[in-house]
């Protein structure tokens, strides 16, 4: 009896060491007409990658290459695909276990900042008072301390995105999906948000998958970048990013940064699947 328990525990430990937080194996998705997939039109073809806890990964690629589709599959919103997605947190539906922040802030116009942020806790069954109390302790970190009682219509674009990010963060999942979260912001605000996001995530232990058009953004924020191509949507190449101290303002004009940028732009333009193609 004791023996079996012990070996079972050991098995768990071994599993944890081997497992990534997220594993995608040959994930493909077909165009659908109604509910019937059309087998010769692929939206995503054979996407395979792993993500470990705490890693920040970016996916860049042209519009229509299936980046958002991929996030919809990972989040659990869309379950119609072939291949395998495994997430170490749960073997069931991933809905509620992965935070997903979209380009649109999707704030509820009838809730003020505090109540919008607390929504994610409320939906997990945390009482309303407790949700509000916990959300309000985090407002300062997100630069929203003075805006707890403001309604979304009164906020700037950058502030709205921060509320949406606070809402996603409060769900307290080990994986955060960001679908062009800063795409609608002006360049200056976006750059401010980058610096702030780096600080926020630094010691959180959260893994992030960021989808973006913006090469600078991808290099600045990520440990690893996947370049996607369209027709069919696939991962064409991947690169590790080593650029040194990210919070340094000079980083975006450093030699390592510009060299990487040139590589990415070339990879995005090239027609063949070069690089470390998967």
């Amino acid at each position: 009896m004791n023996l079996t328990l012990e070996s079972a525990n050991q098995q768990v430990v071994v599993d944890r060491q081997q497992e990534h937080l997220l594993e995608l194996r040959s994930v493909s998705k077909f165009f659908e007409v109604g509910t019937r997939p059309i087998s010769n039109r692929r939206v995503l073809n054979d996407v395979t990658f792993d993500l470990s806890a705490g890693e920040f990964v970016s996916i860049i690629g042209p519009s229509g290459c299936g980046k958002s589709t991929l996030l919809n599959l990972i989040s659990g919103l869309d379950e119609a695909f072939t291949g395998d997605i495994s997430y170490s947190e749960t073997t069931g539906s991933r809905l509620g276990h992965i935070s997903y922040m979209q380009q649109k802030d999707l704030l509820l116009p009838w809730r003020n900042v505090l109540n919008n942020a607390a929504l994610s806790l409320e939906l997990r069954g945390v009482s309303r008072d407790e949700s509000l109390a916990r959300a309000s302790t985090r407002l300062g970190e997100f630069g929203l301390a003075d805006h707890a009682n403001d309604y979304p219509a009164q906020l700037s674009g950058g502030m709205r995105q921060r509320v949406a990010l606070l809402r996603a963060t409060l769900a307290d999942t080990p994986l955060l999906l960001l679908d062009e979260p800063f795409g609608a912001l002006d360049a200056l605000t976006r750059s401010e948000m980058h610096g702030w996001l780096i600080g926020l995530l630094a010691n959180s232990g959260k893994a992030v998958i960021l989808v973006t058009h913006d090469v600078d953004e991808a290099i600045l924020l990520s440990d690893r970048v996947y370049v996607m191509k369209s027709d069919p949507g696939r991962i064409a190449s991947q690169f590790d990013v080593e650029i040194g101290e990210r919070t340094d303002h000079g980083v975006v004009t450093s030699e390592a940064f510009t060299a990487l940028k040139a590589t990415f732009l070339a990879a995005l333009r090239s027609d063949d699947d070069s690089g470390e193609a998967k």
């Binding site: 989040s75 999707l106 929504l119 939906l123 809402r167 769900a171």
Partner: peptide, 14 residues
């Protein structure tokens, strides 16, 4: 109701 809002709720486990 906006479908994107519904999806946001679903990803939060609603």
């Amino acid at each position: 109701v906006d479908q994107d809002m519904v999806d946001m709720f679903r990803t939060l486990g609603a």
